[in-house]
């Protein structure tokens, strides 16, 4: 069986090609980013014209897919590849399986309701298209040749015109790579109390995050700081849940943390069943005590 990988970053190409190699005899990589060699049997590279958007490369992608004879498509979930994967799925009379973080015998495991559930699903169609989350496969395992073929951009009949592009500023919140996180919840009665969490976080070199009510209820935090369903999913070494009750909708965002430490004034809060170390107490007493002691 042949597999078709659709990716735009080098990391994405490596991981997906490594995954494709496990399930297919032959792997074709299609990319409109830099060509990547040594990961697939053939790298098809397409240069997007200056005034076109990559999403409109779908006639070329679909044609290359047809020529490859592949029955399985692994796609990187970037904005543009997600569009192309949808176009390709429609072309192959199927629907793409989204948010895949494990794939075995054609059955994909995906997050459901932002992690409230885990869904297993399987395409019933001739062709299977999967959008694969980063980290699902080990990119160092990818093997392949140095063959690169250029593919021509075939414009669709009606297409978008790209007028300009600009680099985006980097966000100063980086929860994904933080090894310590101090997350604040509804236990903070006043916005100024957050300073206690910030002081503690800066003492131990942690990022400050929040539960949903503090980002979408009262707007004390930007959306990027919110951990949980439809927010960020984090896995630091140490996660402090301060004034967070421990509802499932929050915990799915931090369940993979190394150690979970809870501070809550309600001894019946569900967080105490999901932490390694906890204290029943007022965060206004506990946080300053920690800041002072550490």
């Amino acid at each position: 069986m042949n597999a078709f990988v659709l990716a735009e970053t080098e990391n994405g190409a490596r991981e997906l090609c490594a995954g494709a190699r496990q399930i297919a005899d032959e792997v074709t990589l299609f990319t409109f980013g830099n060509a990547v060699t040594g990961v697939a049997d053939k790298c098809l590279h397409l240069q997007i014209p200056e005034d076109a958007i990559a999403d409109d490369a779908y006639p070329s992608v679909n044609e290359s897919f047809d020529a490859s004879g592949a029955k399985v498509v692994l796609a990187e979930p970037t904005v543009r590849v997600t569009s192309l994967a949808g176009r390709l799925a429609a072309h192959a009379n199927t629907a793409a399986v989204p948010g895949v973080n494990a794939l075995k015998d054609g059955v994909a495991t995906s997050v459901y309701f932002g992690g409230t559930g885990v869904k297993e699903s399987k395409p019933e169609t001739d062709v299977s298209v999967y959008l694969i989350s980063a980290g699902t496969f080990d990119g160092t395992q990818a093997t392949g040749t140095d063959t690169v073929e250029e593919v021509e951009f075939k414009a669709p009949e009606k297409l978008a015109v790209k007028k300009g592009t600009a680099a985006l500023p980097k966000s100063d919140i980086d929860l994904a790579s933080a090894d310590k996180i101090v997350a604040c919840g509804r236990g903070f009665a006043k916005e100024e109390d957050l300073q206690l969490a910030r002081d503690f976080a800066s003492k131990i070199g942690a990022e400050v995050a929040c539960s949903r009510p503090l980002s979408e209820g009262v707007n004390w935090f930007p959306r990027e700081a919110y951990v949980g369903v439809s927010g960020a999913v984090v896995k630091p070494d140490v996660y402090f849940a301060v004034g967070i009750s421990g509802q499932m909708q929050h915990m799915v965002g931090c369940n993979d943390s190394g150690t979970v430490i809870a501070i809550n004034s309600d001894k019946n809060a569900p967080i105490f069943k999901q932490c390694d170390v906890g204290i029943v107490g007022d965060l206004k007493d506990v946080l300053p005590a920690l800041t002072k002691a550490l």
Partner: peptide
């Protein structure tokens, strides 16, 4: 439909030590 749903379940909960102190 193109995709068959095989199962939908709650995620597994991590095993935690639950060593809880009381400030009072």
């Amino acid at each position: 439909e193109s995709i068959e749903t095989v199962s939908i379940k709650a995620p597994k909960q991590a095993d935690r030590k639950q060593e809880v102190f009381d400030a009072s």
